[in-house]
Write a protein that binds this DNA or RNA. Structure first.
Lengths: 340, 340
DNA sequence: CATAATTTCGAAATCGTTTCCGCATTTTAT
DNA sequence: ATAAAATGCGGAAACGATTTCGAAATTATG
């Protein structure tokens, strides 16, 4: 609790005015080199560290960026966070982390917490339930720089980073068609989410463009509970018109499919081919190894951070214009979609 | 940048003194219910949010906990962070995240940043290079509550949370011996780390207790580079005295072993059995599924947070006494160590 | 009714910085 | 030689909240 020495005490020790010491430490041109040296060395000696709150209060900025993610830290969000962290640390920014746990009410609370300057900027991925975004609007109206990534809120006019969900899903589906799949199913989670919609659209279009009749049974809606997902998938795989190709829109549904598959006597890739959106580093170690669409998570994170910091350091030179920046995903073909 | 309305402005609007408004908002007994109601509703109406820096400056506390981790967010640290986040959010605490990237110099810098009250408490896992811990000592001497988890610094007299690394490694090794392995090798990363040492010790003792002669070739030292690890392991597997059982002290070395194995014609578990420390949720999906020692990561995180918050809210009732609390890991036996 | 006790609120200090303004003193220009 | 400008520093206000102390208004008490 002993919070160290203050600027005033340091000044007293040096027999200088606080204003002089402050300027010396901030390398002001008004202070002679001689006194600067004296001040700095005394500060070192007495282990002086400026109080961040006093400074933030005075300067009305916190040198802090807040990250808001919607769920427990999975491989995707971990990589995004790592990407942001790298850039933030490089520029001396601090990082606050919040998790909305897919709960819009929590999202609203957290956003309100950030309304008072605790963070200078925000990078966030919205909740799957975020229908009303008045709280986000308020944040934006206050002038707080905010960037969305992955799960974006299109109604807030700012910069958003996503990956090419539509194209990737299209390509993934096309890949299965090329591998001779006749009945392809799309596994998805939350239909309200921007990325889910895009991926679904990519799937639908690829199916339609291949001249296949699109019907609702070609989409399986899953939930957040692992076990019931597995059962639901198992049921599908045991049914009469089981698919011979699957595109899963999120990593965890691919894993659930592996689990479900274990309980059947179907073989992958012979009876069934699987391709999934995933950032897991061990997709190549699964049995069979999993063909993936890998999102550029780390780069999304670092680009968010770079842009935010640019905006913060040169507010007039950069603007978070209302645009969606797409960083393409990468499809890695592995055994799970091999031709038998 | 428009940082909202201030207490003073709110007071002016209400034709009350700032002190009264402050007390009303903090539910002081000195204020009548009538004025409290008026103040609160006006605060709502004008969207007043207290400036956190002014408050922190005055109260000398930040309602913030800092987490310092030593490397990119893997499944273990992700779970720890989730555990901390859950408890922190419950109690209205904010979370700052720092990553030392296994660099002691960065660790020192980050720790120095926290020397001035930016965080009320710290939960950290040290760098593998942390030999000199004067910076940690300084932090502790200042009276800042600090807790170590997983990678602990035993010289700082505070509470530490670890898992039973020694026993787990011992049991894991014993398990391989019971499965008829005759030549067992231990794969490890950093020998300086407390946890590495403990795991190594557990392995060594299990080997010795089984009446097997312990020799240095039974330990393979790996590095941080994925590819060279794979090559090193591959080389070992192709050598004359290849092991028939492996205990890997960290997750990534198990994955590297899977990769290396692909390049040989050895079969798991027939020719080789593998058990690893790991928190990956998809160990069961590997081919063959991986027998794991799972650390109670989430619980470690939540226990850290609970204890820190107790200490912060009732400083006199709780003390971070110099003790090591062990939360046991759990061994899950899967195909990779099955009897053929 | 006068005095004491209680309730309710205001004025001002305070936390640790930064910065505007002012004031010597010295240097440069005319 | 005198005016102008530059240099180096100090004093004090300000950021926005909390809190100590004290005063006014209300109620209770004798």
């Amino acid at each position: 609790m002993a919070s160290g020495i203050s600027l005033k005490e340091l000044a007293a020790e040096l027999k200088l005015a606080p204003s002089t010491v402050s300027r010396a430490l901030n390398d002001s041109y008004e202070i002679s080199e001689a006194t600067k040296k004296k001040v700095i060395s005394m500060a070192e000696k007495l282990n002086y560290h400026a109080n961040p709150f006093a400074r933030s209060l005075r300067e009305n900025k916190s040198k802090t960026i807040a990250i808001i993610i919607p769920e427990r830290i999975n491989s995707f969000f971990a990589q995004v966070m790592d990407g942001i962290e790298e850039i933030a640390q490089e520029h001396g920014y601090h990082l606050l982390i919040y998790n909305t746990h897919e709960d819009m009410e929590r999202e609203r609370k957290i956003v309100n917490l950030l309304l008072n300057g605790r963070a200078d900027a925000i990078a966030m991925s919205v909740t799957s339930q975020t229908s009303d975004n008045s709280h986000l609007k308020k944040l934006h109206d206050r002038g707080l720089p905010i960037i969305f990534f992955d799960r974006i809120s299109s109604e807030i006019p700012t910069t958003k980073f996503i990956t090419n969900d539509y194209e990737s899903a299209y390509e993934a589906t096309q890949h299965l068609i090329n591998q001779n799949c006749k009945k392809i199913t799309f596994f998805t989670l939350c239909v309200d989410l921007s990325i889910s919609k895009e991926r679904q659209r990519g799937f639908n279009d690829a199916i339609a463009d291949a001249g296949i009749e699109l019907d609702p049974s070609m989409t399986l809606y899953c939930g957040h509970d692992e076990q019931s997902n597995i059962e639901k998938i198992q049921e599908l795989l045991n049914s009469a018109n089981r698919p011979d190709g699957i595109v899963t829109s999120v990593e965890k549904l691919a894993f659930a499919t592996y689990q479900a598959l274990k309980r059947t006597n179907l073989r992958m890739p012979n009876d069934l081919k699987l391709i999934s959106f995933s950032n897991s580093s061990i997709a190549g170690l699964l049995n069979p190894s999993l063909t993936t669409i890998t999102q550029p998570a780390s780069m999304i994170g670092s680009e968010c951070a770079k842009l935010l910091i640019k905006k913060l350091t040169k507010p007039n030179h950069y603007d978070l214009i209302d645009q969606v920046i797409t960083i393409p995903s990468k499809i890695t073909i592995r055994e799970s979609t091999c031709q038998e």
